[in-house]
Structures are given as C-alpha cells and as structure tokens.
Computed example of a mutant assay.
Amino acid sequence: MRIVDNILELIGETPMLKLNLKDSDWNVYLKLEKFNPGGSMKDRMALKMVEDAEKNGLLKKGGTIIESSSGNTATGLAIISALKGYRFIAVVDHHATKEKIDMIKAYGGEIVVVGHEKKPDEVASAEREKAAIELAEKIDNSFFTFQTNNESNKKAYEDTLARELINDLKTVDEFYAAIGTGGSSCGTAMGLKKYNKNTVINVIEPYGSTIFNPIGAPYFQSGTGIPEDADIPKIIDYSLIDNNYYASDREAFNACRYFAKKHGILIGGSAGGVLYKAIEDIANKSGTGNAVILLCDGGEKYLNSIFNDEWMQKNDLLDDNIEKQLSMWLEE
C-alpha cells in the first residue's frame, strides 16, 4: 500500500482490469484512470502543465491559473491550485455536467460559463478558449495553461502513463484511446513507441468531430473530439496514429450503462466510446497479444445524464442493441 504526504503524489500508477472476450486469444486490459485524485487521467497533465509553468517562470506565487475545460482538466487544476495556493478559474460550457462544476467549486475553483446560445449537442470549445485568453489578458499575474497547444500536456503521458504500461505488461501491441487535445493519445503513443516501434495506436473520436474529417456534426460526448468551429490542437501528431475510429453517442453511452450493470465499472461517456470501438476491433482481430484500452474517467460525474433514463430518452439515445452486441463479444 502506498502511503504519501501529499495528494498529488497519488496521481498516476492507476490499476488495470483484465477483460475477457469470447473466442479471442487477445489479452485485453482496461487502464482505469478514474482512480486518480480528481477522477480522471487529466490530473496527470494538469500537474505537468503547472510544474513546467513554475519552472519556466510563467506562473508565479499567488498567481491565477485559467483553463478552458469540459470539466476534467479543470478538476485536476482546481486540486493542484488548492494545494499550491493559486487562484483557479475554469471556463466551461453547457457540456460540463453539474457534477463536474460542483467538484471544481468544492476545491475552491471559480466558474465562468460560455456558449449559452449553443444547442445541447453542440460544444463551445472555440468560445471557451476565446474567453480564457481574454481573462488571462485582463488578470495580472495569471497564466492560461492552454491545454490544446501545451506540449506539457503530451509530455505528461509520455513520462507517466506509457512507463506504467511498460512496467506492468512489458509489451503493448495495441493501444486504444480517445482523442481530443491529443495529449493522452499522442503522448502515450510517443512513450510506447520508444519501447516498441510496432505498437499500434488506435484513436477514437465522436461522430461529428473534425480531427480526421473536416465535415463536423453535433455530438453529446464531452471532453473528446474537436467541434467544427474549433481549431485542431497543435499538439496532435498524426504520424503517431495508425488507425482512427468514430463512436456514436448511442454506442458510447449505452456501453457505459452496460458496463455499470454487467461488470460493475462506472465510466464516463468518452471512455464508453473508446471501450465499445476497441472491443469491436479486437473481437474481429486474429492472432494474440496485449491490448490496452485507456478509460479516461469515471461515470460518477455523469449520473444526471448518461445514467439517467429520462435524459437518455429525452435525447433519443437509448439503444438495447448496443448492450446485446457487447454481450455477444464479452464473457459476463
């Protein structure tokens, strides 16, 4: 058992759960990032961005940290700010669930909400970033961490998550992750390919995201993908990515509900999309090897949406066929 002196020391070294597929010789492991202090993998990069900003003189004592976030990065930054004595302001939109906003506030963070004119299934990433930049210009001794263009985001996963996977498994043949800013997917890919250049990197984004297709469409999934009116993050390295897949909101959310009821695993929406598309791919793959599926956060922050029957029905997202398909692929 780890005993630490500071909650930040508990970031990383998250557990893995082995998943058994029917009629498959692949070893499938779920990397459960919900066990970070803030409940998501974003704690890793939040800490790295702050530490690097401190080292480079961009963030000074008593300063203000500002970030545009759907909620998970902001939660990590709120925790770090609380411990280091910084003021923290999160710029969010309506895609940030009430649970996420309440968590940020609980750690002392302040909330600025934009994108009020957006529809429920539209993401206001561009508006969030614009507002964050304006705040950073107005507030003295402030620093906008700017996760979409911050190399420390990517470096965090190269230094920690990739190393953990290699230490635990020795070899990773297939890696599956959501892609949004590109930090976790590309950063982990960089680290994994140092050990095995043949590791296959698979990324999953929502239908409607524009990372691999310039024609966008609305989607409900939060913290993943890039909407049509936002710029592609500068830290995405397409040369590291071997395959890309699209997960629909129905696939993502019904997969979350299935894993909660059948496997006792409560995960967030983008994690559900990754999990569904990864299992679909592995179930149709011959041979054997180690496959890792990165599950970015827990479902505790989505109890009033994904795990709420009324919300799912209202948005026409319930689909029993998704659960039936997963039951065909997985041992229960």
Rank of each mutant, 00 (worst) to 15 (best):
R2V: 04
G12I: 06
N20H: 15
D23H: 15
S24D: 06
D25T: 10
W26N: 12
W26A: 10
V28W: 04
L30S: 08
L30Y: 09
L30C: 03
K31P: 01
K34W: 10
G38T: 04
G38S: 11
G39R: 01
A46E: 00
V50M: 10
V50N: 02
D52G: 01
K55D: 07
L58I: 07
L58A: 00
I66K: 08
E67A: 04
E67W: 06
S68T: 12
S70F: 00
T73N: 03
T75H: 00
L77P: 00
L77Y: 11
I79S: 11
I79W: 08
S81F: 05
F88Y: 13
V91H: 11
D93I: 03
H94T: 07
A96W: 13
K100S: 01
D102A: 11
I104T: 07
I104H: 06
K105N: 09
Y107I: 11
H116L: 12
K118W: 01
P120D: 05
D121W: 09
S125G: 09
A132H: 04
I133L: 05
N141G: 03
F144R: 11
F144Y: 12
T145N: 10
T148R: 12
E151R: 12
K154C: 03
Y157L: 06
T160Y: 01
V172K: 07
A177W: 12
I179N: 04
T181Q: 06
G183Y: 05
G183K: 13
S185Q: 09
T188R: 13
A189P: 13
G191K: 08
L192R: 10
K197S: 14
I204N: 09
E205H: 12
G208E: 08
S209W: 11
T210L: 08
F212W: 02
F212M: 15
N213H: 08
P214Y: 06
P218Y: 00
Y219T: 00
F220S: 05
Q221M: 15
S222A: 09
D229H: 14
I232E: 04
I235W: 02
Y238R: 15
D242N: 14
N243K: 15
A247N: 04
S248K: 13
A252Y: 00
A252H: 04
N254F: 02
A255D: 06
C256E: 08
F259R: 03
A260Y: 12
H263P: 03
I267E: 02
G268A: 10
G269V: 03
G272C: 05
G273A: 02
L275K: 10
A278W: 00
E280D: 14
D281K: 14
A291I: 08
A291H: 11
V292W: 06
I293H: 06
I293P: 03
L294H: 04
Y302L: 06
W311N: 02
M312E: 13
N315R: 14
N315T: 04
D316Q: 14
L318P: 05
D320I: 10
K324Q: 13
L326Y: 07
M328R: 15
M328W: 02
L330R: 03
E331S: 13
